[in-house]
Design a protein around this nucleic acid. Structure first.
Lengths: 407, 407
DNA sequence: TAAAGTTATTTTAGTTCTAAACAAAGTAGT
DNA sequence: ACTACTTTGTTTAGAACTAAAATAACTTTA
């Protein structure tokens, strides 16, 4: 059906801001091309944003053969966002600037299984917010391991947290009086990747995370694919072995039950490769030290992941696959199994699909959640709904209280 | 990025026509809601279409508690389309009315491997077109077993036909002077399903075909997912068995090499279940006659398909899975293996996903191809590009040569 | 160094759509 | 019958865009 061209609040206006934030200064002509609008409109919108004090004109860029471009840059104090990573035993916060850079971060112990989870989380968040700079706070992004009905609604279903239809979004919104966007953590990462990472240059890509579990974020035509109930990307439960080990979901032989961090450590302990108390770090250390058994464990995991991803690549035809997550620290070892299995299981015409492994940081999950907020202006499909509109309004209104609508 | 709200030719105007064609008469208010535009615009557009002679006002529908709705219906002579199914040894044509009903059909022997394929096809098409009624021919839809760069472009890559970057679209367009839309055959089927079938009521679904090969069409938010190079949905080559039989793609153990019609027949012959010259019909007959071996072959295929589809459902989270293709004639036998394997491999929260098997007809492939033409008005994402615009123009202009622009 | 070609930005005159107010044509309660 | 309430359809003013032409500010070529 025809998408209603909103009209309500201006989408393009703030898409300009988000783009400049994400990619740095650009000319009006660049922006018009990138956002797929006419130069005429760009002139008009940037005029308003300049007079609102959200943009500034910078130096000229050297001529490309014609009139040199006048670069436009963001006034960096235009906004900030907070990203939250929620897992069973702790929460992590980051505060990011409008360009996605981390300004502050913190981590707090937390119990997701109490009856007071939501108010607990709100208090922790309030405390973190209080420490922030005096820049308009555009909103809160929350990444959870589980599925979310709609970003702007924020009802969470998560076996990992033991949450069943928990109204995380509405509660935080009420408690904090701020726009709140809730999303599956891997999808949030995909949004961040699209905005700040390799996904900037690709409209169709796959983000795959390896770590405790295995997950995927699917970006199609520049937009994160959520599926019918927000559950797309749960590749950790693809059936792999007919009679494999028991998975947390209750089935046997899921991908995650074979290549997740827990199972790998289990195998290593059983095989005497690491001590009974050793963890994934010990296993990686063993592999790094050329222990054949350890290498084989990673390599076999890579093999299984490679075959599973080949299936997904056939299904979705992405341009590039981006590997992320805590597990990437051992990617070198995974890759021995992954590359041959993955490539050889692909149809010849797909065999060249790019696989990139990005460096992983502790804050990456929370940073991804924050990207949800910064991405809302891009949100032409209106994934974030009402909350997206609020973010946009805060961005435009708070930054320029002195102008517009003053008597 | 913000989608350019085309503006060029009117999309909504013909979305009205397509909707009325697909779903029958509706009121202005209904249409406005369905197409997500304002009532005001609907008044304006329908006024034009009425005066153009494309629509007609019908009786009032009984009041729903307020002013009774004035129904609008399509003037059925507004247009027709032709759909073509191309396979290695023959082509099939159908002519459909604006509501998707088949008016005429034909099948011709054909050799896809000659050097004159394209002109041969054009001649056959010309002959078929000539037999049609005197109603505006909106365009030609072609379904091919392979991937297509862009519908409106129509460059085909198909191992099955032995075609490498064949410019099918542009050639037919030049030869026939008509809008031509080319698409992978399963994707075309998904479009038809969205327009006329079960997909009408679902924005996220999966069309799976079983027959010679296995394929899938993925519909996300109402739009067919094509992927980076138009190759999405090639689930026939998902790796299933580590050391399975050789597949036509050159790899071993692809889903298709295990559950395709050819392999099933092979196994049945080898097991003495059918004669050395028996085909799939014989195998089905054996299963129908309670031959345990035959039943087991189908059941095992169902088992493998079920596990593979479970993986895809986890990846895409569709609301419903629609099974189509020649193979559905034996679905009863497949289902014994399919249902338990599929359900038990799904995460509990997904276990209820609906699986529907629709009746299959010989012309279904070609009918799907024709739907490409009828769907272009819906094409808010502009998949069909230039050719879509041409279809729209033909629909509006040819039907009302007597009005508009007359001196 | 003047003419030609490029690229960037602005102006102008629409087009397409929406929101909001209104008019039309009913049903249901009193 | 009279009023209140619903739903449909229309009118009007205005917002958001676009295309095309005009203008600006260079580089390149002859």
């Amino acid at each position: 059906m025809a998408t209603r061209s909103t009209g309500r609040t201006d989408v393009t206006r703030s898409a300009i801001l988000a783009r400049l934030g994400a990619l740095g200064p650009a000319s009006r002509a660049d922006l018009a091309r990138a956002l797929n609008v006419s130069p005429a409109l760009m002139t008009q919108l940037t005029r308003e944003l300049l007079s609102d004090g959200l943009l500034q004109e910078l130096e000229h860029s050297p001529s490309q053969g014609g009139r040199p471009a006048r670069m436009l840059g963001l006034v960096s104090s235009a906004g900030r966002a907070i990203g939250v990573k929620v897992v069973a035993d702790h929460v992590a916060f980051v505060e990011v600037g409008i360009d996605g850079t981390v300004l502050r971060s913190a981590s707090e112990p937390f119990d997701a299984s109490t009856t007071t989870v939501l108010t607990d989380l709100a208090s922790l968040l309030r405390r973190f917010i209080a420490g922030g700079r005096d820049i308009p706070l555009l909103g809160i992004g929350v990444g959870v391991p589980g599925s979310v009905d709609r970003q702007g609604n924020g009802v969470v279903e998560s076996t990992q947290l033991g949450w069943h239809q928990v109204p995380l979004g509405s509660t935080l919104r009420r408690e904090l009086k701020l726009p709140v966007l809730v999303e599956n953590n891997v999808n949030a990462l995909a949004v961040a990747e699209r905005l700040y990472g390799l996904g900037r240059n690709h409209e169709n890509f796959l983000v795959v995370t390896i770590g405790t579990g295995v997950g995927a974020g699917v970006v199609v035509d520049g937009v994160v694919l959520r599926g019918f109930a927000g559950g797309a990307g749960e590749i950790g439960h693809i059936p792999v072995a007919e009679d494999g080990p028991l998975c947390s979901c209750g089935n046997h032989g899921c991908l995650e039950s074979l290549v997740g961090q827990g199972p790998l450590v289990e195998i290593a302990r059983g095989g005497g490769i690491i001590s009974k108390s050793g963890g994934i770090a010990a296993l990686r250390a063993a592999a790094d030290a050329d222990d054949d058994g350890a290498a084989e464990i990673f390599s076999h995991a890579g093999h299984l992941l490679g075959r599973a991803l080949a299936g997904i690549v056939h299904t979705l035809d992405p341009e590039i696959v981006i590997i992320l997550g805590e597990g990437t620290a051992s990617w070198k070892h995974w890759s021995y199994g992954f590359e041959p299995a993955f490539r050889s299981a692909l149809v010849p015409s797909r065999r060249g699909v790019a696989v990139e492994v990005e460096t992983w940081q502790d804050e990456s999950w929370a940073q991804g959640a924050a990207a949800l907020v910064m991405a809302t202006p891009f949100d032409s499909v209106d994934i974030a709904g009402d909350q997206g509109r609020l973010v946009r309004e805060r961005l435009v209104e708070q930054s320029a209280p002195q102008l517009r609508g003053a008597p």
